[in-house]
Structures are given as structure tokens and as C-alpha cells.
Nucleic acid binder design. Structure first.
Lengths: 311, 311
DNA sequence: TCCTGCTCATAAGCTCAGCTTATGCAACGC
DNA sequence: GCGTTGCATAAGCTGAGCTTATGAGCAGGA
């Protein structure tokens, strides 16, 4: 059977899952190449495929999207208006894929690489891939390895000489490490748009937050520590989940209010899948810091990466 | 220019193009589903495929990335630490793909759909897809059609009754239309990091900008109009290009300083592919406005979309 | 204790997307 | 005219990813 979508229920007009409606990465890269060089054949050569392959791929992408993307002529190909739009949207996907790739590459090279980075989860998830892409642009030959864990684990690695540079998000700097603040983060309270809090007019008071069962990361996570400290006591968990993604998913699904890093919910807020609830007089800000063993100032690639993280 | 700079030959350890190193969308969606439901089989059912297909696909993704992503047990599957990171990075790609899909869907439904939107290029490229994703979350059954063009074209469509809601970025509101400011944008001067201006310590003066040949959008574009008005004369073009992407690519490639919307260069600045050059005493800010025919206040889906664009 | 139900893994076979090579046609410059 | 550049089409191959069928590990209830 060729069609897998007609045995689950599908909304008419939108066939199958995302993967069936969005061209694959190869096709998007090809489209970007065509936009850049102005010819199917040259774009094909650039990607190491043949001209007929490129021609057919672009054509099938146009069929999939139902829109003409390039104007072919015997003198080259230019994007149509719709093509220019699609190309820009495609660029966003490709950029996300580049960040993914940079992160995955770092994750793969666990050992024996030149720059070894240890980072806390939130930073590794939301900031590091972008930095790695930038670093690769500056120094294409530097292999980076990444180890993700909590603050304690990061400190251990650095002190054991198993990492060159660390990133942590706690309230305090682990002993034996020097640090530099590289960014600021803030915890935010979010709910699904359907939650009663989303229609509040007054900001939430700290006491209300403290007595309301919340969707939270597990105890011991940096987020949880900051929240407990800010509330001057213990937050009350409704559900405890072990990843930021799971917490977001639960909140979007309407499980209840969640507390998360601002970094983690940017997209959801923008798309109105989550709503930010203002909170009064609760210190939810925290510093994000680069750390290294006292005395060992970062040098070489570590210094480059560090300087990329500022500004 | 993307990551194809060593056109043809590949760096060892990084096989092939991006598409060969990054799993395809279907695999990423599957991974997200596994993370959400905690079992390969259930994730498979959710996506309408069989359990062995899911098993094999996750396995081949792990082989591709060289990292174990899920811990299988007879009681279900959980993400490994690396898996949690990868999942979050994957989410970014999937979100970009959702925006792409929302935009493409709107582009496809050119006619006879319920909500017809006309938007200027910059807005259509950088803001609209996110709004459409949000709108679809709120009203899944509203079909949206999109027409992209310059301010004049947007006004024409609205006045001809061929569009229900418009978005423009000019300095003035076309006659016959009411408007509401929905966001603010600003033109910025950017160069490649290697450009001498990137090492300036003093902000750029307006006169310097006016006499320097710049990489620009073509005459008649909104960006160009705002720039000319701000300089109190005509900007001097080094190259004129017909799309924002092309201008960015030229600037990144070191062709010269470019002037672009802040919206368009966020990623490039973050990744340090471009550097923002401060400018003194030049009014480069502009309002982004929603517009509609005077008297015809947006109603129904148009009103929903409008309210999504604020805040 | 054994059965039932959940999990995941493996095997064999099919289909289709996407690649290749080989060719043809159109437009431009010399 | 002829060579170059650009796109389209045709025929054939390969592999990724899907299916169905089956087996094996672990838990909980009768």
C-alpha cells in the first residue's frame, strides 16, 4: 500500500503528517541553491547531483506545494514571487537543521576532540547549537564535543580536566571555578490559553503561585532550585517531568500552569500555544554563566567560543 | 551562501550535505512522538505506521547520529540524556517546518477560501507563518490564502474586495484604508564580520552612510523607500537585488554593507555571520501595520488573526 | 504457576522516490 | 552556421522505508 494516511483520519485538504506536506531537507537545500546561483544545473552541480535530478526534484516539490516556485528560461531560472517566500521559509528550516547538525556532531565526538564543552541542559538545548554553528563558521576545523548534565556534573568534568569550558545556569558558581556572566534568563509562568489564569487582569501574587499545583521539572533540576528559592519554600508539584519538552507539552495540553525558562517557551508564546502569566514580586531571574577551573583562563577555541556568547 | 562553501569536496567526518547528516522530518516527528508517549509502538500508532517501522526508523536515526537516543525496556522507552537534547533540537526543526507548512498552505489556496490575506514581502516572510500556525491552532478549519506584494498591490487587493486583511510596512498608509500598528521594525546596517566597519568604535554618521555604496533591495521596495527618506536623499547602491535573501547572502559573502529589516537578520546576527553597525541620528524605524478598507472593520477569522498579531 | 498483555526486535518481501545516463530542444553569442 | 548554456524527458537501477508475520522478555492477575 502506498498511502498510509487514509487509514487514520485526516483532515481533507491537508494530507498526512507534516513530513508529507513539507519537502525534505535535500529539496529545500536545492531550492536555496537555485535561488543563489540562478540555474538548476549549476545548483545541481553544487550539491553534487545531476541536472535532471535537480529538475525533477524541484518539479515534484512544486507539485507537492501546488505552487510554481521557479521561472525556467533557456537562460537560467529565477524564483517566482511565491518561490521567494517559500525560499525564506525554507531557510528557517535549514538553519534549524544546521543547529541540529552542529549539536549532534558535538554529541557524537564524545572524546579526543579539540574543544570539550560541558553544559547544563537548558543551555545545551537552547543556546549552544547556535554558538556551535557560529564557531564552525569561524573555525571550520575545530571539532567540538559536548557533554550535557547538571551544574555539579559540569563542575566535576572541568575540575577533572575532562572539559575545557562549561556553562551553568544555577544561582551559585560551583567551588573551584571562575565564571563570567554571559546572558540572563528568567523563569516564567505559562499556561495554555484556555486556562483561567490566561484571562486574569492582575498579576499573580507569589503566595498564589506557591499554593497552586504546578507542572514542573523534577526536583534537583536547576529550574526547580531557582523556583524553590524564589518562593522561599517548596513549589507544589502537580506533575513532575524529566525534560523541558515534556513540561511544555503538558502545559500546552492544558495539564496546568508550568514554570519554565524564558528561553524554552519563546516559540510557544509567539504562536500563542502558551500564554505568559505576569507574576508579582518573585525573583525568577537567573544568570547564565560560562565557567572554567580557577586560574585556567580559556584559550584557543574555548576563548573563541566564549567571545561568541557575548553581545 | 549556505554551508556549501567548499563546493563539491567534503570534510572528512562530516559526510555529504546537511540532508545526509540530519534525519528527515518523519524521523524527527517520530522521535518527538516517542518522547511524548513513552513507547515506540504507541508513537508508531500515533503516526499511522506500524511498530516495526518505528523501531527501524529510530534505530537508523541512532546509527546516523552515532548516539543512543532512547532506552528501550520491555516496559516502554525513555529518552537518554543525549536523546533529550536531540529531541529539543528536533523540535526547532519541526516548528520551522510547521511555519513553512502553514505558509505554503496559505499560498496554495489562492482563491475561494475563507480568509484572504495580502501582505508585504517582509511581513509575509518573517511574521506571517508564525501567525498562521497560531491561527490554525485556534481555528483549525479556517483556510487562509496569502498574496504577497508591495504596499500598492496590497491596497489594490483590499479595495477590490479580493482580500480581507492586509499587512504593510511603509511609512504611510495607502488612501482608503484604515490601519492599526501591530509591531515596530527598524532598518539596520550590517556587514560581514570581516568588513572594516565591524571594528569601528564610533557609530556611523548619516553622511557616511549616504556616500557609501550599499547592498540594497531594488528601488520601489519598502526598505528602499524608508532608507531614502531617512537619508534625506538617495542611497547609493553598490548592488541592487530583488530579494531579502539575496541581499543577506551578498552581505554575508562580504560584498559590502547592507541595509535590511531587523526582522530579516536576527539569525545571522546571532550566529555572527553578520555584524550590526550602530548608526547615529538616522530615523530607520518604521511601523508595521494591519490595514483594511475604511469602514470594514475586520470580523470573523480576520479579527482573530489581527488579535493574534498583537502583544 | 501459567496465561495474557504489554513491550521491542528480527525477517522477508514490496513499492516508490530519487538517482543515474542518454538524449532532445530552445535560445543566445560568435 | 556552430558551440555553449540551460531545461525537459525517457528508461533503468538502487535503497529507504513500509508492510505482515513471528519471536522473546517482563509484569500482573487468576
Amino acid at each position: 500500500m502506498s498511502r498510509t494516511e487514509d487509514h487514520g483520519d485526516e483532515r481533507p485538504g491537508s494530507g498526512g503528517s507534516l513530513a508529507h506536506r513539507v519537502p525534505d531537507l535535500g529539496a529545500l537545500e536545492l531550492l536555496l541553491a537555485v535561488a543563489r546561483v540562478g540555474s538548476l544545473g549549476r545548483a545541481a552541480r553544487e550539491l553534487g547531483i545531476t541536472q535532471p535530478a535537480a529538475s525533477s526534484r524541484i518539479r515534484s516539490m512544486e507539485r507537492q506545494l501546488g505552487v510554481a516556485l521557479v521561472d525556467r528560461s533557456p537562460r537560467g531560472s529565477r524564483l517566482t514571487d511565491a518561490g521567494a517566500l517559500v525560499t525564506d521559509w525554507a531557510l528557517r528550516i535549514v538553519e534549524a537543521a544546521e543547529a541540529f547538525d552542529a549539536g549532534a556532531q558535538a554529541l557524537r565526538d564524545r572524546r579526543d576532540s579539540r574543544l570539550r564543552v560541558a553544559a547544563s541542559m537548558t543551555i545545551a538545548e537552547y543556546l549552544l547549537p547556535g554558538w556551535l554553528v557560529a564557531l564552525r563558521a569561524q573555525r571550520p576545523d575545530t571539532a567540538v564535543s559536548l557533554l550535557a548534565g547538571n551544574s555539579t556534573a559540569v563542575a566535576e568534568r572541568l575540575l577533572a580536566g575532562e572539559a575545557d569550558l562549561g556553562f551553568v545556569e544555577g544561582l551559585t558558581v560551583p567551588a573551584g571555578l571562575d565564571s563570567a556572566v554571559i546572558a540572563h534568563d528568567r523563569l516564567v509562568v505559562v499556561t495554555a490559553p484556555s486556562h483561567p489564569w490566561a484571562r486574569r487582569r492582575r498579576p499573580l501574587a507569589a503566595e498564589e503561585l506557591a499554593v497552586t499545583p504546578l507542572v514542573l521539572r523534577e526536583e534537583g533540576s536547576g529550574t526547580r532550585q531557582v523556583l524553590d528559592a524564589a518562593l522561599g519554600g517548596l513549589a507544589r508539584p502537580l506533575i513532575e517531568l524529566s525534560s523541558t519538552t515534556a513540561v511544555k507539552a503538558a502545559a500546552v495540553g492544558g495539564a496546568g500552569p508550568a514554570v519554565l525558562s524564558e528561553l524554552a517557551v519563546g516559540e510557544e508564546l509567539g504562536m500563542r500555544r502558551l500564554v505568559r502569566i505576569p507574576v508579582q514580586a518573585v525573583a525568577l531571574a537567573r544568570d547564565l554563566r560560562a565557567v572554567w577551573p580557577t586560574g585556567h583562563r580559556p584559550t584557543g577555541p574555548a576563548r573563541d567560543l566564549l567571545s561568541l556568547t557575548r553581545g
